[in-house]
């Protein structure tokens, strides 16, 4: 029996198209459902009740958790779980969740004011990275190498329109701008690659299209990713790691990860892995 799965997102990109194309061979019918037109809240979630599962791929850091929470409450199976999505959408919450489970994360300070910012600089020293609590794709992530420019950088944070956008983390600058991106499906790493800074931009976020090199599966990588999945539950995640002298630390976890870069570097068939995982959950 073919199972109906909705990809919930505001649009279809490369990843979602590949998931839709791979679905029929796995006994799935996958279609796009616009995340801005579900009007959830009514008992039984009529806008999604005909689907066997929702694959939440909202890039929005507000929509994903809200949609997952309400759909799950209405009894619709959701991937990833609302708990996982809500944790991943907020960098401070995620680090707290992981730390509580004794999973190593970078040292950081929550910065909600200039006073916080100054204290964070005093405690951590430069270089540090200033990043928004809510956000991703490397946007507004700023490397501060010198204390004499730090205050003027923070002027821009203060000028942002809403406290929601002003909430930041400050953390030490680790790994020289490189990171290890692990694509997890279910409980397994299906692809892993290291992304290093290239060209004129220090950021190594995969979404920025920097050069990548394949990463041999490393027992230390497997161990820390296993711990993350144990805490968040089986799902589809992009787990970003920094390599430090003391071992790997979890930088962030994306609940709707882009995987074009890591798939092209490793050759992994991620759409089939995702479809198989969804089918397994529904059977």
């Amino acid at each position: 029996m073919t199972r109906n799965v909705a990809i919930v997102a505001d649009r279809i990109s490369w990843e979602e198209r590949r998931l839709i194309e791979a679905a029929p061979e796995l006994g799935l019918h996958v279609e796009w459902v616009n995340d801005e037109s579900l009007c959830l809240g009514a008992p039984g979630a009529p806008s999604v009740q005909d689907f066997d599962a929702l694959l939440v791929r909202s890039r929005s850091y507000t929509r994903g958790g809200l949609v997952a929470t309400l759909a799950e409450a209405a009894g619709i199976p959701v991937l990833n779980s609302a708990r996982a999505i809500n944790a991943c959408e907020n960098k401070a919450v995620l680090r707290s969740v992981l730390s509580s489970a004794e999973i190593p994360v970078p040292d950081f300070r929550l910065v909600l004011s200039r006073r916080d910012f100054e204290k964070a600089l005093d405690e951590l020293g430069v270089p540090v990275v200033l990043k928004p609590i809510f956000g991703g794709m490397g946007k507004r992530v700023t490397l501060i190498r010198h204390t004499d420019t730090a205050q003027s950088v923070y002027d821009y944070v203060e000028d942002l329109g809403h406290a929601f956008e002003q909430a930041c983390l400050v953390e030490p600058y680790l790994s020289g701008g490189s990171s290890v991106r692990c694509l997890v499906v279910g409980r397994d790493i299906v692809a892993a690659a290291e992304f290093a800074s290239a060209g004129a931009d220090w950021r190594s976020n995969a979404a920025l299209g920097n050069r990548s090199s394949t990463l041999a599966y490393d027992p230390d990588v497997v161990k820390i990713v296993d711990a993350v999945v144990s805490e968040l539950g089986a799902g589809i995640y992009g787990v970003d790691l920094f390599r430090t002298d003391d071992g790997y630390v979890v930088n962030e976890v994306n609940h709707a990860p882009a995987f074009r870069g890591v798939a092209s570097v490793t050759g992994a068939d991620i759409p089939t892995a995702v479809g198989s995982f969804v089918q397994e959950l529904l059977s």
């Binding site: 505001d10 649009r11 909202s58 890039r59 929005s60 850091y61 507000t62 929509r63 994903g64 959408e89 809510f134 956000g135 991703g136 794709m137 946007k139 994306n254 609940h255 709707a256 990860p257 882009a258």
Partner: peptide
């Protein structure tokens, strides 16, 4: 017509 990217994109 849609925005190139939404203001709250973060994944």
């Amino acid at each position: 017509m849609v925005q190139v990217t939404l203001r709250d994109w973060g994944q």
